[in-house]
Nucleic acid binder design. Sequence first.
DNA 1: GCTTGACTTCGAGTGCACTCAAAGCCCCAC
DNA 2: GTGGGGCTTTGAGTGCACTCGAAGTCAAGC
Lengths: 143, 143
Amino acid sequence: MPDVTNNAISIGELSRLSGLSTHTLRFYEAEGILQPAGRNSGGHRQYHPADVLWLEFVLRLKQTGMPLAEIRQYAALRAQGETTLQARLAMLKLHRERLATRIEELSTCASVLDDKIGIYRKMITESGAPADEAVHATDPQSP
Amino acid sequence: MPDVTNNAISIGELSRLSGLSTHTLRFYEAEGILQPAGRNSGGHRQYHPADVLWLEFVLRLKQTGMPLAEIRQYAALRAQGETTLQARLAMLKLHRERLATRIEELSTCASVLDDKIGIYRKMITESGAPADEAVHATDPQSP
DNA sequence: GCTTGACTTCGAGTGCACTCAAAGCCCCAC
DNA sequence: GTGGGGCTTTGAGTGCACTCGAAGTCAAGC
């Protein structure tokens, strides 16, 4: 079924490549995230390398927590051509900043977690000793 | 209504402190994430500083993407007392590792985004020029 | 010629984490 | 005595991002 003359791939192959289900790929098309795919003689969707690259980028955006609605918006700009370059750049910059914020947030949480782990380790090695101040400030068991 | 003798706070005050709605706080209690709060003479919940600290930690875990089910599990261990220290430490360590993975993932995405932003900037300053190879490799508009 | 498997469309269902609404009660302060 | 905040239970609704099922078409391989 793949269009051999054109190195096009089927939805099943794109599914395998991307790790998304065929359901999801069609869902993305319906949502305007993927442009309507071309069809072969049998009416089957055929995807080209550019589609694969685009999908990879979409997955990156998703991975960083961009909601589908926003990805759709970006995709719509992209579909409108070069006149939307500025707008797309603005979106990417905004998202890049949010991403930086998120990474910082997670790093802070990681430190908190490290502290807590340290306290737990200490409590365990001093096993048998009753809860001390550090314990009480973290995971106190009241009674 | 706060129990002044005991520096306890009401659900409304905890809501203000934590940023969670009273609905959500009761929901967390029902889900076993917060231990059933003590009540005052009028049957109103009263929370103590230790509860506030615990809730803060819960929110940290949530912030890092730990699902409520897992937080509930951790809370259950905590409620069982000191014998579960090892188990809790194991959970924290596991989560810490996932967090590290996630941070790395986001950092990779950030680099990809930076590259893309660079390409866009270049395209815009060279404005008017037709799409070049770099363009084609990122956000090609086929037609 | 029949089975297999991939494809089609459409609409409904899932899981998470809330979020709200209703209905009706209590208690305290002003 | 009224307003405000709190309490209870139950059940439904929301938003996101899928996820699945039904019912049917089509082409290739045995």
